Computed example of a mutant assay.
Amino acid sequence: MRIPTVLLLACIPATAFAQQAQPETGSEWEVSSGVEYESGDYGTGTGTDIEILSVPSRLGMTIGRVQMIAAIPYHRIEGPSDVIPGNVLGLPLLPQPQPEADSVTRNGWGDLELGATYALPVKAVNFSLSGSIKLPTAENDLGTGETDYTIGAEVSKAISDKIIPFASFSYTLPGSPEGISLQDRYAVTGGMATWLGRKTQLSASYRYGENPDAAVTDDQRVQLGLNQWVGSGLSIGVYGSAGLSKGAPDQSVGLRIGFALD
C-alpha cells in the first residue's frame, strides 16, 4: 500500500512508514490540507495566552527515493500584537514580551517552506535525510522576514508486523531578524507507531526542542496521532499534543486530509 507521506510528515516522522512504500520509477503527487489549533503562553511570562489557528496546505512529489515538498499555512493569531507564529522554527516568538499586554487578532499567509527528503538504500533500518528552507513570504508581520534553514534525519525499524519504533533529529539555523536575538536550535522526537488494522495506524511520541529564544524554556511535549487510509488515495489524520514544559503549547489539536495522485 502506497502511503501519502505528505500527510504523515505533519504528524510523525515519515520514515516510520518507509517500508510500506518501495521506490518506483514513476512519480506520485500528494496534496493535503486541514486545520490546526494550539494555545499557551509559551513561557513568555506575559500573562496572556497566545491562540493560533492555522490551515496548512502541502504539495508533495515522490520520485523513487526522493520526496519534494512545498507547504504554506494560513494563520489566525490572537495574542500580543508582535507575536510571530512558528513554522520551521516550530514555536511562536514574542520579541519584546509585555506583562498583561492587550490581545489583538491578525490573519494572513505564513512563510513558504520548501523541503526534500532522501530515503537511503539501506536494508537494516529505514533511514532518510532531509533539508528544508523557509522563505520570508508571510503577510501582516506573521513571519520573521528572514530565511531559515533546517537539516534532519529520520530512522525507523519494524520489530513486528504491527510495531514500528521511530526517531528523528533536526537542526535549524534561523535568520537574524532586526530586534530579535535567535539561536540555532535542535529538536529530537522518539516514539512508536502501531497498526490497528490494515489501514489504521496509531502513533505516540515525545518531542524535545530547544527554543530559538534563549530566554525562554525549551519545548517538551507528548504527541498522539491516528491515521486512516480510506482508499482511492484518500487519507485522514487526527493528532494532538500536550505540553510538558512552559515553553511548549499547553495543548494542540489538528485534523489533516490527504490525497495521493498517481
Rank of each mutant, 00 (worst) to 15 (best):
Q183K: 12
S181N: 15
T189F: 05
L173D: 08
G197A: 08
S170P: 05
F166W: 06
S203G: 12
T172H: 04
G190P: 03
D184C: 11
L173S: 12
E178G: 09
A167L: 02
G197Y: 06
S203F: 00
P177L: 04
V188G: 06
T189E: 15
L182W: 12
L173E: 12
Y171C: 01
R185F: 04
L182R: 12
F166C: 05
T194R: 09
A167I: 01
G190I: 04
G179H: 00
L182T: 06
T200M: 14
M192E: 04
G197E: 06
G190W: 04
G191V: 03
S205W: 11
A193C: 08
L173I: 15
L182Q: 03
S203L: 01
W195N: 14
R185G: 11
L173W: 14
T189A: 11
T200S: 14
T194H: 07
T189L: 09
M192F: 09
G197S: 08
I164F: 01
S168F: 00
F169S: 05
S205E: 05
G191A: 01
F166S: 03
Q201I: 10
S205D: 05
P174S: 02
A204G: 09
Y186I: 03
L173N: 14
A187E: 13
P174Y: 07
D184Y: 02
K199L: 09
A167P: 00
S176D: 15
Y171W: 13
G190K: 06
Y186F: 15
T200W: 13
G190N: 02
P177R: 10
R185V: 01
P177Q: 08
S205C: 01
